[in-house]
Design a protein around this nucleic acid. Structure first.
Length: 813
RNA sequence: GCCACUGUGGCGGAAUAGGCAGACGCAACGGACUUAAAAUCCGUCGAAAUUAACCUUUCGUACCGGUUCGACUCCGGUCAGUGGCACCA
């Protein structure tokens, strides 16, 4: 039995020395860029999820290498982020120190995994030579007009005096101190991802991604086609509403503004009698966090502003309300309320005793309000009698004609907010000058270094704001005194371009070289969790398209193919979490059985894209399987080498199983179907063993070749183990320099095949049918079979269905 | 609530284009080897009925229905679980 620990370190050292895993730039034409989502070093150790992502994907990469591709499989660390900073606030350990420590441990564990990572291309997003280029990216977006500043609401904890991420807000309260979280306006940097909404949508058709993920992005972008309609307000302002249902416009009973709508102040001034109620309501809405406010369970609330607007088609006066079921961030922040044909408006109208006007009639049946489907227009002037789509079109056209609105496409997608009032991130390379305003840091001055000696405990400002040495600078435009931007970039900015950096991870002249990027990218296969479906994966696509428009790259999509691994749950069927106490550590299994066994078990025990509850029942059997293979190979290594080219039936059978396995594995690995691939290897091992035991007069030349093929076939799945056996077989090179065995189709052609024979679709017999028989011959042969004749009971064959290589169905009657 | 995915033996899971359901393995059971155990090797292993036994038959892929010579696979409906979105106007 092999001592896996020493075998692993032996081969890892050899691979390192021979640079087996280092991408050979001379072979760039044959490149295959296989990328796993990089690790976030929040904990010190790799967890089962890392192994499940990296182990099987590495087997895929090794398989492709053996198929002749020059595989580039890099690894790095997404090292900036909130958890390290929170940990620092709790323990006083500096984020840089804890991160570096975690990265060191994880890197060692990743190396011990024995994956084919090209460590010469390693990078960490918190290193100066990386975040310098993240800042460069920001500047390019700024130059292109894709980075801009605006006010936006943030979650604000009044006690901690800090901005909170959504995930830090639990039930409207700060996760740290429990105070009620407020919403506060702050000026923040944004990336104009909405400029690319349409292209991000269209591009989905060109990439090989899971349909589910594409659909999620599609819903996230949320394109909706409708109409803008103008309601002139008594103050002289114009309220623009967005609706997908202009066909219901004659049923408008009132207009609703989001409480944050800028017009609110003006309306308040015009109606001082309502000011108190309006103020109270705006405050109430501000206290509600997103989750509460967006909950369907929340009672509809609102307040009358005292003001009226003019209906653009009827000229009637309709009241203007504020209600928090209207979101300022979507559409125009104002809606026309049609109580009869919208559930929310209906509930609101009922509660506040507002009129309800039916303008749509159900086709064929009683119209029950609220009626939200398409129907025939009534009470709608000239448009009466039109149905849904034609009415929407006609009304939109009419609105355009009279200058009161028109067709409009809206997206749910919002611009990407990238400012974080945090320490542990890439500083935003912007300078605020009293004279010149906002001035970008010149590229030659990058990086804007993140200082080490910072008080990162919350005090109401961004931690960097209190660091005099950092904040004070000179304006690049006028040379006067100026201040730096105290915020850091969202870590999603760091991860939105890292795949471009790997091919030149150490380049200190540029973020990347266009010629190299255009050759090395797009990433051929990207593997990671589906939790990134909407954020990271959308941001990366946006950045790629933006860089393309700036002329830095010539491709549209960063990830040609995307695969999501499933999730390994705790033994109790729940997601692993410390609080549930169901976390399974890979370390003890890796220690006991070795890295190869652990990854094999992960590949064999689960359907890769499904995952499932952890259960270690089968892991021992994988270790036993390796022992079996080892015995088989070591025994064969002692065999003589004589033999001939003629094959007996036993040899043909073995050859069949081998080639069937090669063919299946070649197809299955491409589909990330590792469990079936390993099943085929097991079948082949069973067949080899059968031959070894049953056949006394062996064709050693043939058998030894079969054994060598076994080691080649197994290599991607059990790399250290297979290298060792390859050496046992007297081979001097690495098994990964070998080609993956190719299928010999001739070996898969059998003289005769077993068919299932059915009579009236019920199986009655199994028969061997020789290759090359005509359908008539087959039918004659089958009918002559006594079991079939009995099942037919003297009836005649009306139809005979023959599925080649599988079954024969006689329809008799 | 909406959208999507999933539902197959005691368990993990197979089944490529609608064609023999349960590959491969785990667990369990029986046997060989052994003083014994471990390891190893061989065999059985969806359910029910029937049989002394072999045989055989029927049922069976969450549930109900449909299309088809034939359905785990396609269509319609229901239920359950998981994930995503969540007052999107």
């Amino acid at each position: 039995m092999m001592d896996m620990k020493s075998v692993e370190s032996k081969w890892q050292a050899k691979w390192e020395k021979s640079k087996l895993n280092v991408f050979n730039k001379k072979e760039m034409d044959k490149k295959l860029y296989v990328l796993e989502m990089f690790s976030y070093p929040s904990g010190a150790n790799l967890h089962v999820g890392h192994w499940y992502n990296y182990g099987p994907t590495d087997s895929y990469a090794r398989f492709k290498k053996m198929q002749g591709y020059e595989v580039f499989q890099p690894m790095g660390f997404d090292a900036f982020g909130l958890p390290a900073e929170n940990y620092a606030i709790k323990t006083g350990i500096h984020p840089k120190d804890s991160t570096e420590k975690n990265v060191a441990t994880m890197e060692q564990q990743l190396r011990n995994m024995g994956a084919m990572f090209d460590w010469t291309a390693e990078m960490k997003t918190c290193e100066e030579n990386y975040y310098k280029w993240t800042q460069w990216l920001f500047l390019q977006l700024y130059k292109k007009g894709l980075a801009y500043r605006k006010e936006a609401l943030v979650n604000w904890c009044p006690d901690c005096e800090t901005v909170l991420a959504n995930e830090q807000v639990i039930d409207s309260a700060c996760e740290r101190c429990g105070s009620t979280v407020l919403r506060k306006n702050m000026t923040q940097w944004f990336f104009k991802i909405t400029d690319y909404a349409e292209e991000l949508l269209d591009g989905l058709d060109t990439i090989d991604w899971p349909e589910k993920t594409k659909l999620m992005q599609k819903n996230w972008i949320g394109k909706s086609t409708g109409c803008e309609i103008y309601f002139d307000c008594e103050t002289g302002d114009r309220i623009t509403v967005f609706t997908t249902r202009p066909d219901t416009v004659f049923g408008v009973n009132y207009v609703v503004l989001a409480p944050e709508h800028p017009l609110v102040e003006k309306l308040k001034a015009a109606h001082p009698e309502q000011a108190e109620a309006i103020d109270a309501y705006v405050k109430y809405a501000a206290e509600a966090n997103d989750i509460d406010r967006l909950s369907t369970a929340r009672e509809k609330t609102g307040v009358f502003t005292g003001a009226y607007a003019t209906h653009p088609l009827t000229g009637k006066q309709v009241p203007i309300y504020l209600a928090d079921y209207v979101l300022y961030s979507y559409g125009t922040g104002a809606v026309m309320a049609v109580a009869a044909h919208d559930e929310r408006d209906y509930a609101f109208a009922k509660k506040y005793n507002l009129p309800i006007t039916q303008v749509i009639q159900k086709v064929g049946g009683e119209t029950e309000l609220p009626f939200c489907d398409d129907g025939i227009l009534v009470n709608s002037g000239d448009f009466d009698g039109l149905s849904g789509e034609e009415a929407r079109n006609a009304i939109a056209v009419h609105l355009t004609k009279i200058g009161k609105g028109g067709k409009k496409i809206n997206y749910r997608l919002r611009d990407w907010s990238v400012s974080r009032q945090r320490y542990w991130g890439a500083p935003i390379p912007m300078i605020h000058c009293e004279k010149c305003g906002v001035v970008p840091v010149p590229e030659k001055d990058l990086p804007v270094k993140l200082p080490y000696d910072v008080e990162f405990r919350p005090n109401g400002k961004s931690p960097l704001a209190s660091h005099e040495g950092f904040m004070n600078c000179t304006c690049p435009a006028c040379g006067g005194k100026a201040k730096r931007d105290p915020d850091t970039l969202d870590t999603f900015v760091c991860s939105s371009w890292y795949y471009l950096r790997y091919p030149e991870a150490k380049n200190d002249k540029a973020a990347f070289t266009p010629e190299i990027a255009n050759k090395m990218l797009p990433v051929d296969v990207y593997v990671g969790g589906s939790e990134h479906a909407c954020m990271h994966l959308l941001y990366a696509r946006f950045i790629t398209k933006a860089l393309r428009d700036m002329g830095y790259v010539n491709f549209d999509e960063p990830f040609k193919r995307l695969v999501h691994q499933g999730i390994i749950l705790g033994p109790d069927g729940n997601r692993m979490s410390k609080s549930k106490g169901n976390v399974v550590s890979p370390d003890k299994y890796v220690d006991e059985y070795g890295s190869d066994v652990f990854r094999l078990y992960l590949m064999f025990g689960f359907s890769y894209t499904e995952g499932g509850p952890w259960n270690d029942d089968g892991i021992k059997s994988i270790a036993k399987f390796l022992d079996r293979v080892e015995r088989l190979v070591c025994k064969a290594a002692e065999y003589p080498t004589n033999g001939n080219t003629e094959k007996t039936n036993a040899e043909k059978d073995l050859d069949y199983v081998k080639n069937h396995a090669i063919k299946s594995i070649t197809r299955d690995v491409e589909d990330f179907s590792f469990n079936t691939s390993i099943a085929r290897i097991m079948e082949y091992v069973n067949a080899l063993q059968k031959y070894d035991v049953d056949v006394a007069e062996k064709n050693y030349a043939f058998y030894n070749a079969c054994i060598k093929d076994l080691v080649r076939m197994f290599a991607p799945f059990a790399p250290h183990f297979s290298e060792e056996l390859w050496e046992v077989l007297g081979q001097k090179n690495s098994v990964f320099e070998e080609s993956y065995p190719l299928v010999d189709e001739a070996a898969l052609v059998k003289a005769e095949t077993e068919y299932a024979v059915q009579v009236n679709s019920k199986i009655k017999a199994k028969m061997m049918i020789a290759e090359g028989m005509t359908n008539e011959e087959i039918q004659a042969l089958v009918v002559a079979n006594p079991e079939i004749a009995a099942a037919m009971a003297g009836k005649t064959v009306k139809k005979c269905i023959i599925v080649k290589g599988r079954l024969i169905n006689l329809i008799v009657g």
